[in-house]
Design a protein around this nucleic acid. Structure first.
Length: 196
DNA sequence: TAGAGGATTGAT
DNA sequence: TCAATCCTCTAC
């Protein structure tokens, strides 16, 4: 079943990032449904330098992060890739979880077509790649996860505590000591996570 | 209004 | 190791 707003509006973004592992991220574009199990996430907060919203920096782009938990934050990275985040916490508490990798479940043929690949492997193993496979771009920025475009489902998959690996986040060297925060979560030995 | 750089990726 | 590629943010 679809996760409710209350799941996203909790205060601890790192806890939410961990809880999202094993859940299903689903997108629906032009009646085409695609989905995958979330196997890798990272948490971001206004409290630390790794985040766009650090120090409560409010700009046209970051405004979405200040919204009530439960909407999508999609932005363009390196001028090429759309990155998909889930906004968490209450209004004006700018926090979000970056979805970094999925294990494909529904609509594999559609995802391969979008990625222009003939093999399902490695087309959702990275934050820039999975948005392409799911058909997500910046037009989806601000969309509610309680709607019918993109949402997260719980299909009852149980993740053992021992199967969750915690590490530093990737690609945020500019964040100084905050780059050392243990805010990246992924499933141990899972073949679908992004390359290290 | 110009200039620098980025929560990445895939090819060399 | 490096280019692609363009939007965002900052400084002037």
């Amino acid at each position: 079943m679809k996760l409710k707003e209350s799941f996203y509006q909790r205060a601890k973004v790192d806890r939410i990032a961990k809880d999202l592992l094993g859940k299903l991220l689903v997108s629906q574009v032009n009646n085409s449904l695609t989905s995958g199990i979330i196997v890798e996430t990272e948490a971001y907060s206004y409290k630390e330098k790794g985040s766009h919203a650090y120090n409560n920096l409010r700009t046209t782009r970051t405004e979405t992060m200040f919204a009530e938990g439960g909407v999508a934050y999609v932005y363009l990275c390196y001028g090429i890739h759309n990155l998909f985040n889930i906004v968490t916490n209450k209004h004006d508490k700018a926090e979000a979880v970056l979805i970094r990798a999925l294990e494909p479940v529904d609509g594999n043929e559609i995802m391969m077509k979008r990625a222009h690949k003939k093999n399902i492997h490695r087309i959702t193993s990275g934050p820039g790649k999975l948005t392409k496979a799911l058909g997500i771009d910046r037009k989806w920025d601000g969309k509610m996860l309680t709607g019918n475009y993109v949402w997260v489902e719980d299909r009852g998959i149980k993740i053992a505590r021992n199967d969750i690996v915690v590490s530093e986040r990737i690609g945020i060297d500019y964040a100084g000591e905050d780059a050392l925060l243990p805010w990246r979560f992924y499933l141990k030995d899972n073949p679908w996570i992004s390359r290290p």
